[in-house]
């Protein structure tokens, strides 16, 4: 059965398999209660990790040292910008989304400017910019929870037969990202730069333009994510994006993208995001305490990355 063997040779299959296992474990524990609900909830929550995970994937694929650590602060600020712009009015929803997107784009551009103009390594540049963004957010949002317009919040929670609308949006976005990565000149350029930046430059690829575009893309996706999160959780807050620092990187790695750059995997982002969300669901159904839950989450992520990363980085 060559096609079956081929399926299991793809790096992303393992993340879906992991998601399936933790879901089954949770379902067995509850005796089958809430199996469908768990999936619906997982689909809704996983979308947010998918959105920023895709941006992070493109950045990490640019090669060693490239990472966007400003995503949590970006999400926080964009959520506040979106909610303030919408001002609780349905007529301003589109404008608010646009404002969040613009906020993310500006953050992405600023990150790239720090990296390029001041020659700061991306890890430091994006980390320090996140402090600036965070301070801006605290000043701008005054630490208050700002409510979304009701229809935006309702929209973010809409489901069709148990499939949340945001899940569909996430799938559509992943398809676009896959096409961009595999079928377009932009994606090829990112993959080439990640393998060998000097060779990419000498092969005529506009390396700096591609890097600019990639950090901007990551920023923009962070901005959109902020607006959607604020809608889904019915309010913006400074720490709304906190968990996406670890999870955006974790889903990239668990999903089969090479940390060394030059090799990316889009379906794996979805699989890994579902895995992370369902893992949390499983631990919650087991009733473990918050401290133990964090400990186990950390250990399992380390374990999965070691297991999944072992053979891939061996080449």
């Amino acid at each position: 059965m060559p096609s079956f063997a081929k399926l299991f040779a793809t790096p992303w299959i393992w993340s879906f398999l992991g998601a399936l296992i933790v879901w089954l474990a949770a379902v067995i524990f509850t005796g089958g209660h809430g199996a469908g609900g768990m999936i619906t909830a997982a689909l809704s929550l996983a979308v947010f990790t998918v959105i920023v995970g895709l941006g992070q994937m493109f950045v990490i694929t640019l090669g060693p040292g490239n990472v966007d650590l400003s995503l949590p602060a970006n999400i926080g600020l964009a959520s506040a910008v979106a909610m303030k712009t919408m001002d609780g009015q349905d007529s301003l929803i589109a404008l608010g989304l646009l404002a969040a997107l613009a906020c993310g784009v500006v953050i992405g551009l600023a990150n790239y400017a720090l990296i390029r103009v001041l020659r700061i390594p991306p890890i430091i540049a994006t980390l320090s910019s996140s402090f600036i963004i965070l301070s801006t957010d605290i000043h701008y949002g005054r630490g208050l929870q700002i409510k979304p317009p009701d229809s935006f919040a309702d929209f973010a929670n809409v489901q069709f037969f148990g499939v949340p609308i945001l899940g569909l949006f996430g799938v559509a976005l992943a398809v676009v990202a896959w096409a961009g990565l595999q079928k377009m000149v932009y994606g090829r350029s990112v993959l080439a730069i990640g393998q060998n930046m000097r060779a990419a430059k000498l092969a005529g690829i506009p390396v700096e333009r591609v890097r600019l575009l990639t950090y901007t893309l990551s920023g923009a996706l962070g901005g959109i994510n902020g607006a959607l999160l604020a809608g889904y959780f019915r309010g913006a807050s400074v720490d709304i994006g906190n968990e996406y620092l670890l999870s955006s990187i974790a889903v990239v790695v668990i999903g089969g993208t090479s940390v060394a750059g030059g090799k990316a995997n889009v379906p794996g982002i979805w699989g890994a995001s579902l895995f992370l969300v369902l893992l949390l669901t499983m631990l919650n159904t087991f009733g473990v305490s918050a401290g133990l839950r964090l400990l186990l989450t950390g250990l399992i992520i380390v374990g999965v990355i070691t297991a999944a990363g072992g053979h891939k980085t061996g080449r």
Partner: peptide, 23 residues
């Protein structure tokens, strides 16, 4: 150092300079 993209196929290594024309 300056030429090969080691993760790619022979075809992709050849086409990288001409992608714009292959669209």
């Amino acid at each position: 150092t300056d030429g090969i993209f080691p993760l790619w196929s022979i075809a992709m290594n050849i086409s990288i300079r001409s992608l714009a024309a292959l669209r």
